[in-house]
């Protein structure tokens, strides 16, 4: 199946779902589709990495299967598990059942296996890959390069229809070279003020264009300061919602200093911003 016909088609279809892309995003999404390779999106928190996967699923009308990574994630929760309670019951009920307790009906599907066996078009989102232990990467290698899973008792299961795989990472640690080599790489960063203005306009209906412009410019100014945590796109959007709720028509100094807590979440960052921007 072809996911997108060209990069420009990817732009239009993603835009229909409310996701504004740029050249880099559109090209790598398109390539991930035609080359059937996983897409690794890396970047700071809140720039729309997870949102990208959701938008792809919506734009192509596919199912979204999500695997949230965390420390201590293992095979049993990522890939598959045997339903041992059911197996025990079967053995107790029927003494000759030893042979057929490793069958389909005792298999518990976990996200990875589910995405591979699905016969509908599927987007597999492996979220925050950097949070998982290094061993999980090894597990992912077989799946991401050949789209197959080996279950010792059943044999190898190969994908009938290759899912569109999106991995996200906040870069809290370097992912292994082996994993990166198998993926297309997309670095998502804070957007240009022009693009951020359009995002705010698309995400927050009812906001005035001048306010959106001011918000985007102010966010860019804040990001240029040396802060512990720069405001993310998600936070700029929250900021827009806040202004809308407060009924402010213009983003002046008074408003900024009152609502700074929406975008800056460290006390020292707020103090620094107040000092540098000349707020009270």
């Amino acid at each position: 199946m072809t996911w997108f016909a060209s990069p420009s088609e990817a732009v239009t279809r993603l835009r229909q779902t409310g996701y504004l892309s740029d050249d880099a995003i559109a090209t790598s999404v398109f390539l991930a589709g035609v080359l059937q390779k996983p897409l690794l999106a890396e970047g700071p928190a809140g720039v729309g990495k997870t949102q990208l996967a959701k938008a792809i699923a919506e734009a192509t009308g596919s199912d979204l299967v999500r695997l949230q990574c965390y420390e201590g994630l293992d095979e049993a929760r990522a890939l598959y598990e045997w339903n041992y309670k059911k197996q025990l019951l079967r053995i107790q009920a029927d003494d000759d059942a030893w042979d057929d307790i490793f069958a389909e009906e005792f298999l518990l599907e976990r996200p990875l296996l589910k995405a591979i066996r699905s016969d509908r078009p599927t987007v597999l989102l492996i979220d925050e890959t950097d949070k998982a232990d290094v061993e999980v990467e090894g597990l992912l290698l077989e799946i991401l390069s050949d789209f197959q899973v080996t279950i010792p008792e059943l044999g190898t299961i190969t994908a009938t229809r290759r899912p569109f795989v999106v991995l996200t990472s906040n870069a809290t640690r370097e992912l292994s070279e082996a994993l990166k080599r198998r993926c297309l790489y997309l670095h998502l960063d804070y957007p240009t003020p022009e693009r951020e203005r359009d995002i705010v306009l698309a995400q927050v209906p009812g906001i005035a264009e001048t306010v959106a412009e001011q918000l985007a410019r102010t966010a860019a100014t804040l990001r240029a300061l040396e802060l512990k945590k720069s405001p993310s796109i998600a936070e700029t959007v929250d900021w827009a919602h806040t202004l809308l709720a407060l009924g402010r028509e213009v983003l002046d100094e008074q408003t900024v200093s009152e609502t700074l807590g929406v975008v800056l979440k460290h006390h020292s960052d707020q103090q620094r911003a107040a000092k540098e921007l000349g707020l009270r």
Partner: peptide, 10 residues
């Protein structure tokens, strides 16, 4: 440019 970047620059 973006195609090269996606495949080569990790």
């Amino acid at each position: 440019r973006e195609a090269y970047a996606a495949t080569l620059v990790k």
